[in-house]
Design a protein around this nucleic acid. Structure first.
Length: 576
RNA sequence: GGGCCCGUAGCUCAACGGUCAGAGCAGGGCGCUCAUAACGCCUUGGUUGGGGGUUCGAAUCCCUCCGGGCCUACCA
């Protein structure tokens, strides 16, 4: 039994996430967590809402709520949606938790001790009308290069030119439109990542088998131009972790908070502490996952994220943890494997939160239960490149894979048995060559499935799982118990018994992908034996003869052409 | 501008230097009737974006062109 720590990139608190966000981190992380638990490993699966930063403040201002209230409410909404998609976090924390405040401040203190924090005076744009400093991208103006009048202070979206706010013509606040902007001096802390460049580079080099996407992005940042740049880790905001040096004040940093990208990854650790608190466990309970000197030396740590998150997870966060262990007294667990994803596109374009283009988590669950989405999203996960969501494809996958191949198998077996032998596992006959051949095939497919799951090859895993389901239909066609029963009822009983046992195996191995359907199959079988079919031959005899079951309702319903068309029209633009 | 990724059957993808380039869906034919008109079997279909090169051998390596996407550090 291994110990596996799994984190999913933290969804930002600002609004409801779309399916692209879901498939890029939380969903595959959940798949892996569920699989590893099913194989009997000890799993700690952590996620949380990422609650700090300017967008959260603005979103709260828009609804008229205090930002803390807004975040608390949205955390609840996201938690509810996560449940709807069956995300099996051991803890779904909040980056605004007391634990994260303390740990972030602690990490900053350790980094300062290590000489890795530098105070830098710089000039930022202040907007008196908004009462705040404006991040570059919250300043709009006319692009000096192309004349586009909605260029942002970091880049012109029209001509892609990199800009600084002072280059913009007629700059204004993107928040209020105020043109009364003034440069103002401010001091900030910088994390001296550059000092750790060699170590980070070697660390990345020492990793084996990471996705090209992961390493190429890390390498780009390490070696591009002047190499890894130092990074500001504080901001002039109200909402966030106050800048303190551990328990002590940080002179000169009064009224400032840590930058959200500094505190967000630390929340992975803090959320594990929140988990321990929630269960009344001592600190040792979470430290054994995160401190290699306190039990985490045998932990395998895997992170899941979209490609936009890679730089922070390959560089900034490791730099934080390495720096915090400058004197060897705080060996924090570094990630062992980073599974990164490309983007999911929607009908040829991007999912857009601002334009309401695409399907969002709340609306998805209004249309269909989580399992339907889980199956499509995971079996089309954007692993090698961006992948595209289309309603036609979604309909085809759901109807064919879930309803016809898996759902109908369950249906035909249970209904036939119930009609001919009654609702219990029939006792007659013995398995013969047909059953042994099918059993061997199950064993072979299962081994391939396990290989792909271990390797986090998600689409391949899905394909293999589907192939497992197909075996059931192939077997039935060949065994044809509806014919056998006429000449050899005993043999027909054995055939049905075999199929019922196959059903249980399907429930167990499909659970990571479609947990609700798996649970319904097991409920129908009145079975609580979720043990993994390590020996398929044995597992095909798991249900005791005479064991009563019930015929389940339709496992997956089909999506009609009318529905598909209506949904496509509804989600084409402008979110309601 | 620079960097990275991708371009393989109508569609979604696999094969990552070596038997006739595979699978699912869609299309065509046959079979079965237990089942959500479901299932099974067979089958049509590709000069692997174009061109050049390396090699005994290339979808796979190199160069170049075309097309799509992403990143480029103060959104997170």
């Amino acid at each position: 039994m291994a110990r596996i720590l799994i984190t999913s990139a933290l969804p930002y608190i600002n609004g409801i996430k779309h399916l692209g966000n879901l498939v890029g981190s939380q969903l595959p992380a959940d798949l892996y967590a569920r699989y590893m638990r099913a194989r009997g490993h000890e799993v700690m699966f952590i996620c949380a809402t990422d609650e700090h930063g300017t967008p959260a403040e603005l979103a709260a201002a828009k609804t008229g709520e205090p930002v803390a209230d807004y975040c608390a409410r949205m955390h609840g909404v996201q938690k509810h949606l996560a449940d709807g998609f069956g995300l099996s976090f051991d803890h779904f924390g909040r980056s605004s938790s007391a634990r994260n405040h303390a740990l972030t401040q602690h990490m900053a203190a350790r980094l300062a001790e290590a000489g890795l924090v530098e105070e830098v005076e710089e000039t930022q744009v202040f907007s008196p009308d908004d009462g705040r400093f404006l991040p570059d991208r919250y300043i709009e103006g006319t692009c000096p290069a192309c004349g586009y009048d909605k260029a942002r202070g970091d880049q012109c979206e029209n001509c892609t030119k990199q800009l600084t706010p002072r280059e913009l013509l007629d700059p204004r606040s993107a928040i209020s439109g105020a043109t009364n902007l003034e440069p103002r001096a401010t001091r900030h802390l910088y994390l001296r990542q550059s000092a750790l460049r060699e170590r980070l580079d070697q660390w990345i080099d020492s990793q084996r088998g990471w996705p090209i996407l992961t390493t190429s992005i890390a390498k780009k940042w390490l070696h591009d131009g002047d190499g890894l740049q130092d990074r500001g880790i504080t901001r002039d905001l109200d909402w966030g972790v106050p800048v303190r040096r551990g328990d002590a004040p940080w002179p000169g940093m009064e009224g400032k908070v840590f930058y959200v990208w500094f505190d967000a990854p630390i929340e992975y650790i803090a959320a594990t502490a929140e988990w321990a608190d929630a269960h009344g466990l001592p600190d040792a309970a979470w430290r054994r996952w995160w401190r290699t000197d306190q039990g985490a030396d045998d932990v395998r740590y895997v992170q899941f994220m979209g490609k936009d998150n890679v730089p922070f997870h390959t560089l900034s966060f490791p730099a934080t943890l390495m720096g915090a262990n400058h004197d060897g007294t705080e060996p924090w667990k570094l990630v062992d494997y980073i599974k990164s994803f490309n983007y999911l596109t929607y009908d040829g374009g991007q999912f857009s939160t601002s334009q309401g283009r695409g399907v969002f988590m709340d609306h998805a669950l209004e249309l269909l239960p989580g399992d339907y989405w889980r199956w499509w999203l995971l079996s089309h996960a954007p692993e090698t490149g961006d992948s595209e969501f289309t309603w036609e494809n979604f309909q085809a996958s759901v109807n064919k894979d879930l309803a016809d191949v898996l759902g109908n198998f369950v249906s035909r077996v249970t209904k036939f048995c119930n009609a001919r032998f009654g609702a219990e596992v029939p006792a007659g006959g013995d398995y013969g060559p047909l059953e042994h051949a099918a059993g061997d095939e199950v064993a072979a497919r299962l081994a391939a499935y396990a290989r792909h799951m271990e390797a986090m090859e998600i689409r391949k895993s899905a394909a293999e799982l589907r192939a497992l389901w197909v075996i059931g239909n192939e077997y039935l066609q060949e065994a044809a118990p509806w014919s056998t029963i006429k000449t050899d009822p005993e043999q027909a009983q054995a055939q049905v018994r075999f199929a019922l046992n196959l059903m249980r195996i399907y429930a167990v191995v499909s659970r990571p992908f479609v947990p609700d359907a798996a649970a319904r199959i097991m409920a129908a079988l009145a079975c609580a034996d979720w043990s993994w079919p390590d020996s398929p031959a044995q597992a095909l005899d798991a249900l005791p003869v005479g064991h009563a079951f019930t015929v389940p309702d339709v496992l997956f319903r089909k999506i009609t052409d009318e529905e598909r068309e209506a949904w496509a029209a509804r989600f084409a633009g402008l979110r309601a």
